[in-house]
Design a protein around this nucleic acid. Structure first.
Lengths: 199, 199
DNA sequence: GCGGGAAGTGGAACGTGTTTCAACGGGGAC
DNA sequence: GTCCCCGTTGAAACACGTTCCACTTCCCGC
């Protein structure tokens, strides 16, 4: 029963996604994941160090889809603010299309397990990459309203922080989808204005 | 054994604090909390709905101390940026004085349990209150660099989001104390500049 | 005093994440 | 073909959050 390497890992991730879509974090019971993936529990723990490890992998998988999507359908908008607004609106809507899954993956990322630091860091890097890509017009070279590479990076990182915190707030029932988008929009606008005045 | 109302709850919280200071979130085992507080496990669950509920109460308790501290020793600085910088530096240092405790409380807040929404919201409100208080000079009336009440509120909320996300990142081993302070400082500076140019 | 209800107690029990282990099996080295 | 390595399996066991329950204790109104 050898087949492709990582083929079991993929089955495990897919099973976790299926279970998370239906019932969120708590519904991803590892015994269920194992049986759904037609794998022994021990195998799950050979491939992943913990439940959160699996769900961070799920997050990674979803971000990949997101990147492909953005590649296919670039962000529209004339200035940075509107580009960021539409990007985050799309992003958040994509997240909310499967709320339970988003909650499960987000909770795993927010748990803050140091053992997953590098994987979570990778997620944040990819997110800031996406955000940075939304600021600079994809077709043009560096026409980002006169922002330097460093400035774009700073902006992207701060926005990812605001977005992340807003999602955690949503997860905890503090506010809804629209509030998340609104917070990020406000932050985008203010930060961009602040940067523009810096030079 | 009735004594003061909530006296058991206070013992439970203090026990949780003691345990959390030593070993963080995982060390707060409810059986240990109960025995340390000289209380039955059932009593713990009569007062608090979950482990996270206890730790959010701990968070609340710590924020109260923070408020008292700020009241006693007001923020210094001439302009908004430097006031915010020194405020967040103090705030973050206070948090890091007991890293394990901070990790435990933070993890509870970041777990996103909807049952705790109102309590977590209260925490965020108090934090934004503190931040807003740091922006406007305490002695003066409304000299906040020409910012309206709404603007101050927006600023405070966004900064609390950035700070929260940075702490979660710290908790997960993504970066250290200095990076947390630096991120918030950058955000303060940019957001303030953005707001100043808005009017 | 007395009765009743609220709060507390001690302990068992359950679910689920995590660990451990003995046995199995298939594929490559020889 | 035989043997060994190593991933897999199935199952048991453990830890800890959470629930439940029968019993006790305390307080309050009468």
């Amino acid at each position: 029963m050898k087949s492709a390497p990582g083929e079991r890992a993929r089955r495990i991730i897919n099973s976790a996604i299926a279970l998370a879509e239906e019932g969120g974090f708590e519904a991803v019971r590892l015994r269920d994941v194992a049986s759904h993936a037609k794998v022994a529990l021990g195998t799950v723990y050979k491939r992943f160090s913990s439940k959160e490890d699996i769900l961070v992998a799920v997050l990674d998988h979803e971000v990949e889809r997101l990147e492909a999507w953005v590649r296919l359908q670039p962000i529209e908008g004339d200035d940075g603010v509107s580009r960021l607004a539409s990007f985050f609106a799309r992003l958040t809507e994509a997240f909310f299309r499967k709320p339970k899954l988003a909650q499960a993956a987000l909770r795993a990322a927010a748990a803050g397990d140091p053992a997953l630091a590098s994987k979570v860091a990778r997620f944040h890097e990819r997110m800031t990459g996406l955000i940075a890509g939304a600021v600079v017009a994809s077709g043009l070279d560096v026409e980002a309203g006169g922002l330097s590479e460093d400035q774009v990076q700073t902006l992207a990182y701060l926005l990812s922080q605001v977005w992340f915190a807003a999602l955690v707030g949503w997860m905890g029932g503090l506010f809804d989808q629209e509030a998340v988008i609104e917070q990020v929009r406000t932050a985008s606008s203010l930060l961009l204005r602040g940067l523009a005045r810096q030079t």
